[in-house]
Write a protein that binds this DNA or RNA. Structure first.
Lengths: 214, 214
DNA sequence: TTTACTTTCAAACAGGCGTTTGATACGCTC
DNA sequence: GAGCGTATCAAACGCCTGTTTGAAAGTAAA
């Protein structure tokens, strides 16, 4: 919510309120499902405000996106060993992805748009997803090397390891409506998210290490 | 395509054409993204045909769904050992999920609707997804027991193993627009799908076996 | 205060959507 | 062939969408 809420002029304040509301609605309803009218209602702004400040709904999405938090995650903990870096990354990544109260709604917005392309998907892929895949590829490669069998694993196989890890992570967000119906007590509180992250790391490290031993 | 295309009367033929077209469009564009006008255009039927034959767009989706192929997959190969049953199931499941030419578009339709609920989601969960999760839970439990450490693994952990497997599978469908942008040569032909399935099985078996040894 | 510019607002616009309508054509029984 | 229920059709309906408009209100320098 209150992310870019500090601003000097009245105009900058409505801009900021619109961005906050947009991030909230986009992450909850998706780009298609979100309506300008709902965003403006939540931002207590007039219906024409979005087009005045951002030109269009697309323009609003483009400005609402902010890839810095995800990039920061990748630069953190550089001094740790690869397995631990993976563990820390997945925990923080899952917090961004599952915790509705997390200030960075970017990942939740992006996750919704993966399956059905919007005009912004190219930018998202270029600036956020491609670097993320590259980062994780390097991490998996390091883990393989540390286990002494990395040179046997080809590029395609390495890529699939990254997909396996990301697939597990994204599942909890994409399938949340289903999981909630299957298991009514499910709540993504901090404790649950940490347990999920822990499971994914253990499961994935075993999968990766298995590859280096084939 | 030609799935229910054989029918006697002219009325039954348009019904069948509508269902075929609906399955195609729903799986490509999702329920929200699909329009009755496009479905009718592809089925070479009048725009009012859907409401005449199925009452509404929701009714069309409900009749277009058919859970039998997915259920059949779970009943097959009952005589094999659990690991092999998992391997065969994942291969066939991925064929349904990724191969556009596969006659069963059900999984592809369902996959699109997981993240954003339609009136049919409750039925889908009850009749298809819940049984699928149960089936996979039993399979994972059997694999754990065969490795002699199954009793140490609790229900929550077991459920997360199922999520890990399904997450990996669904990733390739959900993220296809992204993966295509990242890796232009990616094509889901039979050879590629088999390689993906093989990777998921190896990766997951290692993850499962790791749990029984903790 | 006047002036010029920026920002907000209610209202309307054009287009797409699912759905309804009433007329028309069809296929059948008698 | 007449009569009748079924199926198809073009057209329109009401609603919601993103966007535009032109007037009103606010802001700040001269």
């Amino acid at each position: 919510m209150m992310e870019a809420a500090e601003a000097r002029t009245a105009s900058e304040q409505t801009r900021a309120r619109l961005l906050d509301a947009a991030r909230e609605v986009f992450s909850q309803r998706g780009f298609q499902g979100a309506t300008i009218r709902e965003i403006c209602r939540r931002a207590e702004a007039n219906g024409a405000a979005v087009n005045y400040h951002f030109g269009s709904k697309d323009g609003l999405l483009a400005e609402a996106l902010n890839f810095a938090p995800l990039a920061a995650l990748q630069k953190a903990n550089a001094s740790e060993c690869p397995s631990i870096r993976l563990r820390l990354f997945i925990r923080d990544f899952m917090m961004m992805l599952l915790d509705e109260k997390n200030p960075s709604s970017q990942c939740r917005i992006m996750a919704r748009e993966l399956a059905d392309p919007t005009p912004s998907l190219d930018k998202i892929v270029r600036e956020a997803i491609a670097p993320l895949h590259e980062f994780m590829g390097k991490l998996v490669r390091e883990i393989l090397n540390a286990n002494g069998g990395g040179d046997k694993v080809g590029a395609a196989e390495l890529r699939r390891c990254v997909y396996s890890i990301l697939g597990q992570c994204l599942f909890y967000r994409h399938s949340h409506p289903v999981l909630h119906r299957l298991h009514h007590t499910l709540r993504y509180d901090h404790k649950e998210i940490e347990a999920i992250a822990e499971h994914i790391v253990e499961f994935s490290l075993a999968g990766i290490k298995h590859l280096s031993k084939k």
